[in-house]
Simulated assay, not measured.
Amino acid sequence: MKFRELAKQIFKIAIQCSLVASITLFLLEGTFRLYLIDFYKSSFEYLNSDFADRNTDKTLMIIGDSFSSFKGGYPKVLHDSLTGFSVKNISVPGTSIREQYLFGRYHLKNVKPQILIFQFYVGNDFLGWDHHLNWGEISFARNFYWRLSESLWSLAYLNYGLGNIKANITEPDTSAKLDWVEKPFSPDLYFERDKLYFKSEPMLVENAAYLKGGREKDFESYMQRVADLFKYASEDCEIYFLIIPHMSQVSEMYKNQAEQVGAVFTKRFEVASPSYPLYLKLNNFFADDHRVKILNTIDLLRRSEVSGNAVYFNNDSHLNVMGQQILGEFLLKEIKPNDQ
């Protein structure tokens, strides 16, 4: 009898806890989708902490992911050179247009920049929008989270916050990571997340660059959301759509390394080809928007590699310090003739 009463109490408490958790998650989801508060405010404040608060009515805004949230990266190059502008970097690692639309819209409503840089990464931005699940190779928990996060958008924010807490506890010194990624290339040392993505979709890079394997459908929905975001920019705003290629698009060496960590390519894939289908279709998509200029950086990064200056980390697919500097100088040439 006592056991039954105890079981009933436990069941009752479990139901109550589940109800509270469901209501809390529902409220969080609604608040996040409406973006009633700036959820990433502390991240943006840290990212812009080295930028001067300039007395000017001209603003350059950057929206992107981890490629644009590299502290001291290309946004810093722009800030230091374009002294007539306030630079506002609102980039968050691990985000795609799903989250970028929300916080980008929030800030574009409050600040009307003269220049907007929207950064897109060929390597995994479509994957962040639509995950290709692989139940045979990847854990049930990971597949379940990916699928659920496409419906419950706030889960990505919660995961981002937990990731920051974990990073601060396990690796408070960022120099430790830089030491790891700059060691000689090794499949064993390579960034686990990149290997996970290739396990999920081995042809991820080629599918994205050549708009196949289902990514041709993702292009339409993804870019429509980008276009919706751009509606919040003023008519006289200069918008630069900055494409960061996957390293395998830049050199044969990087392509071979990508294959060693799980990437698969067909004979159709061309290294160092700037006129790939994704780039061409982006130009067509924004052809009627006079504000938008598509920036293709494959040739830029390729020239640096040929001259002996590596632009990507050895064990991570992100741009290294040199790559960030070169990217910043490239953007200055695009922007300065009209605005400095």
Rank of each mutant, 00 (worst) to 15 (best):
W153P: 05
P337N: 14
K88C: 04
G214A: 15
K255P: 01
H131Q: 05
S175Y: 02
F241D: 11
L204Y: 00
M253H: 04
R98W: 11
R4Y: 15
F120V: 06
M247Q: 11
S234G: 14
I10M: 11
Q224M: 10
R225Y: 02
Y101L: 06
Y160M: 07
M61K: 09
E29G: 09
S251G: 06
G213Q: 08
L278N: 00
G104F: 04
C17N: 13
R225C: 03
M247P: 00
V311Y: 08
F219P: 02
M253Y: 03
F11Q: 15
S22A: 15
G323I: 05
R142T: 10
S149F: 10
L242I: 04
S275Y: 13
G328T: 08
S200M: 07
F120E: 00
S307Q: 12
Q324W: 13
L60F: 09
L155K: 07
R302K: 14
S317H: 13
A141Q: 00
Y46H: 15
T24H: 06
D130T: 14
K212W: 11
V271S: 06
D316R: 11
A227Y: 13
E334M: 11
S151D: 10
F198K: 02
G30Y: 10
R193M: 15
K195R: 12
S22D: 05
E220K: 13
S22T: 15
N124H: 12
H246G: 12
K183H: 02
F67A: 06
N207K: 09
R98M: 09
I117R: 04
L229D: 02
